[in-house]
Structures are given as C-alpha cells and as structure tokens.
Amino acid sequence: MRRHHPNISRIVIHAALFALLAVWMIPEVYMLSIGLRTPDQAFDATLMAWPLTLDNFATVIRDNAIVSFFLNSLIVTLATVAIVVACSTLFAFACAVLHLRWSLVLYATLLTTLMVPLASLVLPLAILLKTFGWVNTYAGVIFPYAALGAPFAVVVLKAFMEDSPKELFEAARVDGCNAWQTYWHVALPLIRPALVFVGIWQFIVTWNEFFLALIILTRNEVKTLTIVPMQYSGLYMANPGALFAVLTLIALPLILLYVVVQRAFVRGLLAGAVKG
C-alpha cells in the first residue's frame, strides 16, 4: 500500500502526529490560556476562553519581583554549567587522552554518582552546607549541582574523546604541545558538538532543579524561579488568571531558550551517537 500511495500514507502519518501533538500540548496551552483570561472566565472548564486579555500579565509583572528570581536562576545555572563543563572536560581528557594511571578507577567511582538519588543526599548535603554557612547562598546550590551533574557530562565527553582520532592528539604532541595545550587547542575544539549538548542539558536540569533549591534557598533574595510557583499558588488562590500568568512567565524563558538552541542540542546528541 505504502509504496503505491506514498502521499496518502504521508498525510495520514502527519495527521496522526499533529493530533497526538495537539493532545500533548493541552497542558501548555491551558496554562497560557488561563493566564490570558478575565477573572470571570477564569474558572470556565474550557481549553480556551475568549476574549483574551493581557491584564494578568501586566498585574503580575507590576506586583512581583519575577525578574530577580529570574536573575537568581540565571546566575545559579550559568555558574553550574561553567563548572560542570570545566571539570568534566578536564577529567574526561585525563582519562581518554592522557590515560593517567588510576584515572579509570576514579572514573568508575565517579559514575556511581549517576545512581545516587538526590533523595538520599539532601539531608547530609543540607547539614554540610549549613556547616559551610552556605545556606541561602548561590554557592550552596551551585557546587552540589555541579557535583551531581559532572559525572553524566564526563561519560558523554569521555566517550566522545575516545571516538576522536587518536592521531590528532599525537600530532599535537609532535607539534610541541604539552598536555594543557593539547587540551586547549585540540581537544576542546574537537568535542564542541558534545560540549554544546552537555552544556544545554546541564542548563535544563539545573534551571528546573527543585528538591535541593527548596531546602537550601529559603530566602526570597536567593530563590530560583523553579521554587517560587508554590508561594504564588497561595497568593493567587482566588485569581487563577494571575497565577497562571506567573507560571507562564516562569516556564517561558527555558522554553524559548530550548527552541533557539534545539538544533545545536540535537546535533550534539546525534554527533555523540554517530561513533559507537
């Protein structure tokens, strides 16, 4: 059938995908739609309610310090991504290119982190950070996030470096590079697709992290975007329009960022898998 009617099957498949996507997008659309409603439509049990109004967005932006939460998220996330990228590339380079003695043992040890659920770490981490005096500081979440995120990055980057032609690193050595120069001039540019992938993924994970942020960041000055919806759900109990306007504003930055970078993200994912 498919051979004889390629167009019909293509249309059917596209229609099915669009239908599924429509169902899948209901929560996102619903979120946006409630935020765009007038107070008396807010409790209508419909996906869309007309007319749309931007009043709620105007209200919440005027009344709240969303921007400062956004900046907190941005600082925490960027710092975490930077640390993860730096630590994991160095570590992966030492394992995959320098073949340092014991590095594989350390690698295996590091990997166990991937299997440690955060639930079993929050309690001791909270106490440790209290000892450091890092509760309610950016550092209090940045470093644990980096420690939890680095192992996955190391796995991806190490595999990627091992799949890179070994002769490139030898050529660098013949050209007079020491280990650091080889890392900087050859290894880093070489693994850029994987690096982009790892960076974006770490960004998403960190931006959306909830558990540790909930425990460590209790003061408004340091809270990240992810943990503020709770306090708004109490504040705007009677005004879902305003609440969902806030939620939309909280969700939007990362969604927009992903739409912008998704091409590079998927390319990194594909490139990482090409060699196997």
Binding site: E28, W207, N208, P229, M230, A251, I255, Y258
Partner: peptide
C-alpha cells in the same frame, strides 16, 4: 517541550 517546562509549573 514538556521536558524543559519547569516541573513546578
């Protein structure tokens, strides 16, 4: 998109 939408939202 749901993956990148904040879980609290």
């Amino acid at each position: 998109l749901p993956v990148v939408t904040s879980v609290s939202v």
